[in-house]
């Protein structure tokens, strides 16, 4: 799980061009959207596309749990692992 979290932090920095930010500066349980890292709704779409591409997972955009899955790196890692196991 820690490996996936590290991969996700690097992925977030790369796709969102977060200059001057290192993976170590993104707390696994910090909010990704709003007051946390400050990502927005376009970023959420971009992150979904990147996750599908990198991990070949299915993301059900109608899922009521989607906001929770995308809330933090830790939640995202758990979501990716659960989808890979299916």
């Amino acid at each position: 799980m820690e490996n996936i979290e590290a991969e996700l932090k690097r992925l977030i920095i790369d796709i969102f061009e977060l200059e001057n930010l290192t993976p170590g500066e993104i707390a696994s349980d910090a909010p990704l959207f709003g007051e946390g890292l400050g990502l927005d709704s376009i970023d959420a779409l971009e992150l979904g596309v990147a996750l599908k591409k990198k991990y070949n997972i299915h993301i059900d955009t109608y899922s009521s749990n989607l906001v929770e899955h995308f809330a933090s790196v830790k939640n995202l890692a758990g979501f990716v692992v659960s989808q890979q196991e299916q």
Binding site: I42, D43, E46, K53
Partner: peptide
């Protein structure tokens, strides 16, 4: 390939 939402916007 897929379209990047941010690139599109």
């Amino acid at each position: 390939a897929g379209v990047s939402p941010s690139r599109f916007s």
